[in-house]
């Protein structure tokens, strides 16, 4: 099912995110589900779809497409994330055809984290095309032609998502790119993690007129250390002091409870401005259902 169908129906769309394992999914040794499937199971029934990251942070793992297909087999609706870091225009188009052939309905087109941030620092970065171009190319495939104008034997039928960072300064530059993404074919957006409703509002005041659905993105801050780490190492994200303090004010055992509480508070404030939520739980998928129950 395409996410765009839900947005069109006026549905408040909830998605969560899993990162594929660093390993293969061929055999299911010991009957234990791989981490990404376990996390998906934790949110089953509480979300509409699951983002599957593409070698996130440039750390080599199982490919997003393989993991997406496996999740689809288990009855989840995957959002296949595709970055421009590792593949040229031939490989990206080919993988979009592959994704559609394998039953994928949603793709999120991103630039991708830079190679040097990951675990293969000496790899050659590709970045043959950018996310705006990827969206335009993907739209063309939906319309039955590749980027060179050659006809396809069968068109793809993919809902095209993109990302926007409301924290970006200057915001107008980020929104200029967002508009280009919309023109290129983006049908829905997920935001980078935002922890300040005013920041989200600053963006929606300018983007409401674009008429595309935006899901509020939130990375669950699991500890005060993680908050500080994100501020120092994750560009484009600001975790405010109050969150770091509140997470630090409780014992380790109570951190999940606290995280639930903080996230609910943020979502309640931001929800009226958004058309959905996108959770990035980074291993804490088990708390997503409680947050969803309390807010949606």
């Amino acid at each position: 099912m395409k996410l765009t169908e839900l947005f069109d129906k006026g549905e408040f769309v909830i998605t969560s995110e899993v990162g594929p394992v660093k390993g293969c999914l061929r055999s299911n040794e010991g009957g234990k589900l791989p981490q990404c499937a376990q996390e998906a199971e934790m949110v089953r029934g509480h979300i509409h779809a699951i983002n599957v990251t593409d070698n996130q942070s440039a750390v080599m793992r199982l490919g997003s497409l393989a993991a997406s297909v496996r999740l689809k087999e288990r009855g989840f609706e995957p959002i296949y994330q595709m970055t421009c870091r590792d593949r040229n225009r031939i490989a990206l188009q080919s993988d979009l055809l592959g994704a559609c052939s394998l039953g994928i309905d949603n793709v999120l087109c991103l630039t991708g984290d830079y190679t040097s941030l990951g675990d293969h620092k000496s790899a050659k970065s590709v970045f043959d095309i950018d996310s705006v171009q990827l969206l335009k190319i993907a739209k063309g495939l939906n319309e039955g032609r590749d980027m060179m104008g050659n006809a396809l034997t069968q068109s793809t039928n993919l809902a095209l998502g993109a990302v926007v960072n409301p924290n970006f300064e200057p915001l107008d530059l980020q929104l200029l790119k967002m508009e280009k993404k919309i023109e290129a074919g983006a049908e829905f957006f997920q935001t980078q993690a935002v922890y300040d409703p005013a920041v989200f509002e600053r963006m929606t005041k300018k983007t409401d007129k674009f008429g595309v659905p935006i899901q509020y993105g939130i990375v669950i801050v699991k500890s005060p250390q993680m908050g500080k780490f994100m501020n120092e190492n994750v560009s484009g994200v600001n975790v405010p002091d109050w969150i770091i303090k509140e997470m630090g004010s409780v014992s380790k055992e109570d951190r999940k409870k606290k995280a639930v509480e903080i996230t609910i508070r943020l979502i309640r404030e931001i929800k009226p401005m958004a058309q959905g939520i996108h959770f990035m739980p980074l291993g804490w998928s088990d708390i997503v259902p409680d947050i969803v129950k309390a807010t949606v």
């Binding site: 630039t111 991708g112 484009g236």
Partner: peptide, 20 residues
């Protein structure tokens, strides 16, 4: 631009500096 982007910035700049 570290990623040779042609249509505007990635989301990663912080305080005007490149994420890389």
């Amino acid at each position: 631009c570290a990623k040779s982007l042609l249509n505007g910035p990635c989301g990663g700049a912080q305080d005007g500096k490149c994420e890389v």
